[in-house]
Design a protein around this nucleic acid. Structure first.
Lengths: 123, 123
DNA sequence: TGTTGACTTAAACCATGGTTCAAGTCGTAT
DNA sequence: ATACGACTTGAACCATGGTTTAAGTCAACA
């Protein structure tokens, strides 16, 4: 089982180490082990969890909700239903947001077309 | 030409009036006219501009960039090229963000599948 | 043995995007 | 005349999501 230092994790996932410490403090990364010198060492499981946290962060889930989710993971199988419900709700929120962005993009495309046309005409 | 009060605009676009004032203060809504009592009155052109601002906001353009864009609109045709370039860059940024969200959604879908399966098995 | 580099902590600091508050001004209905 | 509701302003306040700083610890290398 390979363990990584915080700087290795930081480089590998391209996240500032300060952010990783911040996430741990906020409860998004529980149960991180330490070596004899008190330094964080990240197991494969921790890397997997961090990957999940990044998925949720990339889809704009608030940190407080990610913490709730992680708390449920730690709590165990009794929270499976709640986690499933949360992921389903979140999925819908993400789809809604993508739809809004896609719709708004039309307004931007319209500007691009108009500006392109106007610049053509001016030549 | 129909003019709207701030509360009408607020209701019509579902934006808090405090936010509309904030946008004006930040320079996103220049040249808003006032009635004799000093109250804002929004022309059709202002509504169109506000629509554009909302498109950019919905696609996560920072307020400072939206202000730059609006400044260029006010400046006139000499800024057409810069506006076009900005919209093209922004479009790419939006496409990138949608791609990241879509990719991250796979991780969420995977959780949904796994939790659904585990809950089936438990029954 | 001493210095270097990577790490630790708590606390302070920061940017962004608003929201809320306090005090005052109008226009209209009673 | 006055009371009400909608509006005005500037300033203070707030939440979110980090980043930076200061002071210290530890392991390894010269």
């Amino acid at each position: 089982m390979k363990y990584r230092s915080i700087s290795e994790v930081s480089a590998e996932l391209d996240i500032p180490d300060s952010t990783i410490r911040y996430y741990e403090k906020k409860g998004l990364l529980p149960l991180i082990e330490r070596d004899n010198a008190g330094r964080r060492i990240f197991s494969e499981d921790q890397m997997t969890l961090l990957g999940t946290v990044m998925c949720l962060k990339n889809t704009h889930m608030p940190i407080s909700d990610i913490k709730q989710y992680v708390d449920w993971i730690v709590e165990g199988d009794s929270t499976l239903e709640r986690r499933l419900e949360m992921m389903n709700n979140h999925k819908q929120a993400v789809l809604d947001e993508i739809a809004l962005m896609t719709e708004s993009l039309k307004g931007i495309d319209y500007k691009i077309e108009r500006y392109t046309r106007q610049l053509q005409e001016k030549k």
